[in-house]
Design a protein around this nucleic acid. Structure first.
Lengths: 345, 345
DNA sequence: CATCGTCTTGTGACCGATAACATCATGGAA
DNA sequence: TTCCATGATGTTATCGGTCACAAGACGATG
């Protein structure tokens, strides 16, 4: 019946192969100090018994870490989901396991809340969260285990070294580029529908999408309209953007991500404004659906998956410096011009 | 500097409180057989030292499991992502940790590949994958640890008991309902753009979306057009659906999910067919963006998040029968009529 | 031929918890 | 008063590994 057979351990293999458990451990971990013939015997035994090492025991005993915990924003956000996907992919390739824990944007997490998410003290962590709870987690973990933590943030690779170690895309410049593009099209100014991230003041010189937007506007000598803050959901954005969409003097809106852009597109349509004739809309992130909306969304492509993969590799390097430090592998943010942007009529 | 202090263990607490480590263990696990005064002392020590139990050690020592591994399809699919979100939410509430491992649809996984994803023998698993690799994983794990596994599939709750334990939404009936709705609108027949899942033959009486579609058509005495198979990505769907969209005799298309529906909507637009005047399109899943496309997508709402939460609760129950068996908590699939469907002109 | 370093393998402690069993009071029943 | 069930706590083994160190075999060196 449902009798789960007892798992085979390193001792079983040792007995079967006629060696000590330590020798089995050496073979499993690829130690060079094992005679070829012995190795053969052990490998045969492993094969025969279908032995599979227990990662918990391995980690507990002080072996090298083989798991990461990812503290992330709600995975229904494209950016978080894609970064997580990259981390998982790299981790799986390396034979590591990845745990996830979602940081609730509504909740204020105490230090304890955050630490309680880790399965053990010293567990390696990657934080994917650009908003309040993420920054809080970053702060807490930096204090406790700076060497076993990476945060995916807004800094370009290598810009900051050592705790807190951030890694990410240059949102600021991308925001500026998109804004310049719209101005170049002939728009008087550009309005901004902002994701929650951008609400906090940029700490420690971090460059936000919204910062880049404001900077580009100032550099062009244009007025900087009041930024419209909104939430993470499409529904919230749809509500927030109503005044903007109804104001006929508004001809261009830069949105904090593609979900917001979709909401704006919909709101514009319902308000009877033609896109891009009456109103240009530019998104951020280049989510998979962006290419298939009607009209197709102009947006800024972000290479989240590669950032995620690099975050994992970088963490590994920090945990074990004998593993080479990865080169930054992701592409720069890039404006993808499609159909929602054009010169004002 | 980055000196990670040694973690405080149960022994440290014991020493600090002047009791044995076992007593500390009792307090931590809420055993009733501890004098109130002792409990106080121990709790104080825990607080003071900021002790946090090591889950790895706990599991290794044979304590109750506190982690699940989720084997899932690519999380960029809405259904998988939402189910995962539900699992994580329920798990977090229960103080468990969640590991994820993605099953690559391209790859044929051997039994070993699948087992290698588990951190230890007997690790509780939830499988979210309705396609080939998922079914394979289900088969492998059912053979090894039927009691510590739940698969999220297409069966209604309670329909099958015991290994393999499936749990899910009644896709078949939902597919039939959507089809009947379209026929009721006056369409001669309904075409189907199918997700990969539906390609395999329905094993063991599982009801697919595509099955329900075909059934409804037959019951209405209509011809069942050839099903158009496609991949999981919007881009693939966009290509696959071209012939259908160009065929002016086609007036209604039921799509396997909302991504495919979006691709179809776009393709129809580019082919110069008005939606819903010339062509009705119905999706599946009610992804967040579905309400905000133009025209807004008619689709079948699926309560993935609650299915995920229930899967977790059910797994817990199976692992420890003293935990009550959860009631099925999710809503039935429900047709959401929006703007992409209507009578043929 | 004795000594020593190297290669190979084994032994025992330990990681941080739980489980099973032993021990010691304490208080009510006989 | 004696006995014993019961409650509170301690002791030891164990989970499945790794680590540090010891020990045996062997060829090279002086």
């Amino acid at each position: 019946m449902g009798t789960t057979k007892k798992a085979v351990s390193i001792w079983d293999v040792a007995k079967h192969a006629g060696v000590s458990h330590q020798t089995v451990s050496r073979v499993v971990n690829g130690s060079p100090r094992v005679a070829a013939t012995t190795r053969e015997k052990v490998l045969a035994a492993i094969e025969e018994l279908d032995y599979r090492p227990n990662r918990l025991a391995r980690t507990l005993a002080g072996g090298a870490a083989q798991s990461v915990t990812v503290l992330t924003a709600d995975t229904s956000l494209y950016g978080a989901e894609a970064s997580l996907r990259g981390i998982e992919k790299a981790a799986r390739a390396a034979g590591w396991s990845v745990s996830i824990s979602v940081l609730d944007p509504e909740e204020t997490h105490s230090d304890k809340d955050i630490m309680a998410r880790l399965p053990r003290a010293g567990e390696p962590v990657i934080i994917i969260a650009h908003d309040e709870p993420g920054m809080r987690a970053e702060k807490v973990l930096t204090a406790v285990q700076p060497q076993a933590m990476i945060a995916i943030g807004r800094y370009a690779y290598g810009q900051t070294e050592d705790p807190p170690l951030l890694l990410g895309l240059d949102d600021g410049e991308a925001g500026a580029e998109a804004t310049r593009y719209l101005l170049g099209l002939g728009h008087e100014t550009v309005h901004h529908l902002a994701i929650p991230t951008s609400l906090g003041n940029a700490e420690g010189g971090r460059a936000h999408r919204a910062d880049g937007w404001a900077r580009a506007l100032r550099e062009a000598g244009r007025p900087v309209p009041e930024m419209i803050p909104t939430g993470w959901t499409i529904a919230e954005a749809f509500e927030s953007v109503q005044p903007l969409v109804r104001d006929r003097s508004v001809t261009a809106i830069l949105c904090g991500n593609d979900d917001l852009a979709l909401a704006t597109l919909r709101a514009a349509h319902l308000a009877g404004r033609r896109v891009p004739g009456d109103l240009s809309i530019v998104g951020f992130d280049n989510a998979p659906f962006a290419e298939y909306t009607t009209p197709a969304l102009t947006t800024v492509n972000q290479d989240f998956e590669n950032v995620g993969m690099s975050a994992f590799e970088l963490l590994r390097h920090r945990l074990d410096p004998s593993i080479p430090k990865p080169d930054p592998a992701w592409g720069l943010p890039e404006l993808v011009i499609r159909e929602t942007s054009g010169p004002p009529d």
